[in-house]
Design a binder for these strands. Structure first.
Length: 307
DNA sequence: GACAGCAATCCGGAGCTCGC
DNA sequence: GCGAGCTCCGGATTGCTGTC
């Protein structure tokens, strides 16, 4: 046990050598995240889930989510607001499962285990992994239940102009920006720099800064045209200066943040050894997941031996 | 003179056909 | 069934012209 936890006060241990520490789980939280490319779709879907599946908290249903027998007491549901986002939470025998819209870009489903005994689990810390699998099972069952949504009915607004071709003022088709391309991503990141907010920018200025990505100003104009056609950039009348519009700021921030932290997940960004290869080499992620599980098993086994 | 706009052209990928 | 070759379409580039 000492190899994992130590209680020291200066150089002296506060624990008598005749005593042992036993470790127990007070609360275990297991969450599953569904990440969305579009904040609008994510929000609309979550609103539909709140509306359609508010009765999940009924005793019989919630018992099925937790894979236990129905219990007439201890089942209740709450709706709350966190940072103006709704959160629905269902209680079952002192345990809970909640679902909320996190940052507008992902829906988090989270099982909280406070009373493991009622779920056939135990409190000693060596049951940590069992709690993990149990929590994942609860999350999956709730998500399976919520999967019964016709997504075509959710997105009732007009199509996102940044995702498909639009027509310019002469009815010519302008292709959508594609931030998977290094050149377009570089341009968008450059446009977000504060130095352009005061006086705007010229293509020549961008060409000097982005000389590694663009060979000439025509290439920059071509990419800027995609943003101009969508109202993300506006040209100042009679001048060769452009400015990023409010719409443009919102889209640029959302898209670049989404690409950095969601489309290229943090786990692949952390391990620098070829993050760009991971999409074509899924075995690397699987190996990583295997190592995590292996480590978790070793910790719980070690705890069991030393307890 | 510098820059933006526009049309022509180039290029590459997807889909289809045909022969082996 | 598979691969080579052809066609088409849409995105990207280039070069000329107009405007400030």
């Amino acid at each position: 046990m000492d190899q994992f936890f130590k209680f020291d006060k200066g150089t002296y241990s506060t624990r008598s050598k005749h005593l042992n520490h036993d470790w127990y789980l007070t609360q275990v939280e297991v969450c599953s995240n569904m990440i969305f490319k579009s904040a609008r779709f994510c929000t609309s879907l979550f609103e539909r889930l709140l509306d359609k599946f508010s009765r999940v908290g009924l005793p019989d249903t919630i018992a099925r989510i937790f894979s236990r027998r129905p219990c007439r007491t201890g089942s209740k549901s709450f709706w709350r607001l966190y940072d103006n986002n709704a959160c629905i939470k269902h209680w079952f025998r002192g345990n809970a499962i909640k679902q909320y819209n996190k940052t507008g870009y992902y829906i988090r489903t989270e099982t909280t285990i406070n009373n493991p005994k009622s779920l056939g689990l135990k409190k000693p810390v060596l049951f940590l992994q069992a709690c993990l699998w149990y929590g994942l099972g609860c999350n999956d069952r709730l998500l399976d239940c919520c999967a019964d949504v016709d997504t075509s009915t959710i997105y009732e607004g007009e199509a996102d102009p940044f995702d498909q071709p639009v027509l310019d003022h002469k009815d010519r088709k302008v292709t959508p920006p594609d931030l998977r391309k290094e050149r377009q991503l570089g341009l968008c990141e450059e446009l977000l720099k504060p130095k352009y907010t005061v006086n705007g920018f010229k293509t020549a200025e961008l060409q000097r800064t982005l000389s590694g990505l663009f060979r000439n100003s025509a290439q920059i104009r071509y990419e800027m045209k995609k943003l101009v056609a969508r109202g993300a950039i506006k040209k100042q009348k009679g001048k060769s200066f452009y400015r990023v519009t409010e719409t443009g700021w919102k889209w640029l921030w959302a898209s670049i943040t989404s690409k950095r932290y969601f489309k290229n997940p943090v786990i692949s960004a952390t391990f620098k050894a070829g993050p760009s290869n991971t999409p074509t080499q899924p075995y690397i992620l699987e190996e990583g997941l295997g190592l995590i599980n292996q480590g978790l098993s070793q910790i719980t086994q070690g705890l069991a031996v030393n307890m």
